[in-house]
């Protein structure tokens, strides 16, 4: 299928991109890696008047350290995130989740920022971003602002990005020495997650000292399983303790029903997969 016609501009700086976006008006769209957007355009489920391509803005790409913070450019591809030693060292959970995104070709084009801004609740990178307390730095005509992940995702495919704003970078506190696992449940390899659980834990003296658990596709936005985290902290890293903590996984979730899963099953899966994710994280 064939997209409807649109204008196209590929600015080379964030400032130019922001200007182009605000000048183009509300029918314009930003294209990052385009791996979700292009199929949508081909199916003519959307017909933007203009695409602002962020693909030629070098400052949006790459991973760097900023003191205790890891900074990932929004246009860093999944492939780059997967292979980046800084990400592996300081945000292993994000690397694990990125490994499971779509397929290799898509990972070569798709970007972290694009995935987060797309805000598909079945997308695999939202829950890790939330669980890891990511801060999303956005730029608009009024300047830059940092939005905590807790405030970024507002609804199905909706974010708190304002008209004319562009997601520029993702800032994460360093989780150096944490272990992590992303447990994804889907029907075929390249399908979206029915449910997935992002878990990162830090163990001290055989006791879980810190824990972060995020849930994919358990509500209109990613969900932080804080009750699970609380239940894990201070517990010995034993199967019994993990299973018991995981029983809290469905608290505060509001999953949808579709052909693959209903609410009860999704909530059940959240508990089972949380237990497995934490267990797997502990064995890494």
């Amino acid at each position: 299928m064939i997209p409807a016609a649109f204008d196209y501009v590929a600015p080379t700086t964030v400032d130019d991109a922001v200007r182009a976006l605000s000048e183009a008006g509300e029918d314009a769209k930003v294209i990052a890696g385009g791996q979700s957007l292009l199929p949508v355009l081909r199916m003519r489920l959307a017909a933007p008047s203009k695409l602002i391509d962020l693909g030629r803005i070098p400052e949006l790409r790459g991973v760097r350290e900023d003191g205790d913070t890891l900074v990932i450019g929004a246009m860093t591809t999944h492939y780059e995130v997967q292979r980046d030693p800084l990400v592996r060292e300081h945000a292993l959970l994000l690397a694990c989740a990125t490994d499971t995104v779509a397929d290799p070709q898509v990972r070569h084009r798709g970007t972290l920022g694009g995935s987060l801004a797309h805000a598909d609740p079945a997308g695999d990178l939202l829950a890790p971003a939330l669980a890891l307390d990511a801060e999303l730095v956005v730029s608009g005509m009024d300047g830059r602002r940092a939005v905590p992940a807790t405030e970024f995702f507002t609804d199905f495919f909706e974010t708190s990005l304002r008209p004319g704003e562009i997601l520029c970078e993702i800032r994460l506190p360093k989780y150096t020495g944490w272990s992590a696992h992303y447990e994804k449940f889907n029907r075929v390899a390249q399908a979206w997650s029915i449910v997935a659980v992002a878990a990162a834990v830090r163990v001290e003296n055989d006791t879980i000292a810190q824990a972060r658990v995020g849930l994919t596709n358990m509500a209109a936005t990613p969900v932080r399983a804080t009750a699970v985290e609380q239940a894990l902290i201070g517990q010995p890293a034993t199967p019994e303790a993990i299973t018991e903590a995981a029983q809290h996984a469905a608290e505060g979730t509001a999953p949808t029903t579709d052909g693959n899963a209903d609410v009860e099953y999704r909530q059940h899966l959240a508990r089972v997969l949380t237990s497995r994710a934490v267990t797997a994280a502990l064995s890494t």
């Binding site: 590929a10 385009g34 292009l38 199929p39 081909r42 391509d53 070569h108």
Partner: peptide, 16 residues
């Protein structure tokens, strides 16, 4: 292959 990496050419614009 686009600059040495596999991509799905149905999901890349020629201008890109």
């Amino acid at each position: 292959h686009l600059d040495g990496h596999s991509v799905k050419s149905c999901s890349v614009l020629a201008v890109q």
